[in-house]
Amino acid sequence: MELSEEQIERYSRQIVLKEVGGIGQEKLLSSKITLIGLGALGSPVAYYLTAAGIGNLRIIDFDRVESSNLHRQILHYTNDIHRKKTYSAFQKLKLLNPDCDIEIINERITSSNSKELLKGSNFVIEGSDNIPTKMLTNDTCINLGIPFTIAGVLRFHGQIITVIPEKETACYRCVFGDVTIGDERMSCSQAGVIGLIPGVMGCLEANEAIKYILDIGDLIINRILYVDLLKYSFNFIDLYKNPDCLACKKDAIDLVEKSDYGRSNICQ
């Protein structure tokens, strides 16, 4: 791959970095990342990955923009209300960087299509608003051996964890167990969320993807980062693989085919 004059100019401020260079920029331009969810977490992820010159970004969402989304889902504008989030996102991202091949999937990710939708990705970013989708992403990526990051937000709090199946790092299910069965957690629409906590956490998710692609720095693996923007605390908690984890133990069955990822508790 040869960088064009336009690309050298566009990416100059990151090519300058010791950790990136022309070689790193070419890695970014030839990488394929899948983003699940084009809401509050997905917005900054999509913006920054597109701006950084990720070659192929697959964006998945089935939802339409509502006015109550706008205080935190910065991909979408007032005149996007009622539009499909994928179309709204595509329009902004193409204007931001025509280099980036944006592939839109107007579907809800479920256990029957998750493997097909995530297959072939170099990295997956989970940015949905519900735990069943996070578990499904975890189980599917472990099954396919794809590295991924999952973040969650509530009120002024956020958390993020990255999993590298190849390195057998602790997974999301190791930590949160089987919460898909009859779990009635408070959803974000009831608890509320300040607009910029998903902004902060989404930026961290994008950073994880870029660092993984470039193979630089330290990832949030075998630990979870808790962020509290009220107290300004950023704390890592060490994690260990759960030997009985249904997703990542040695002879794990294919959970994606066996679980129903009950949707009763999904925050809509």
Partner: peptide, 14 residues
Amino acid sequence: CPMTFVYTKLALEK
């Protein structure tokens, strides 16, 4: 700046 360094760096990498 920084294009002088950027072009030099790109050439050196090869």
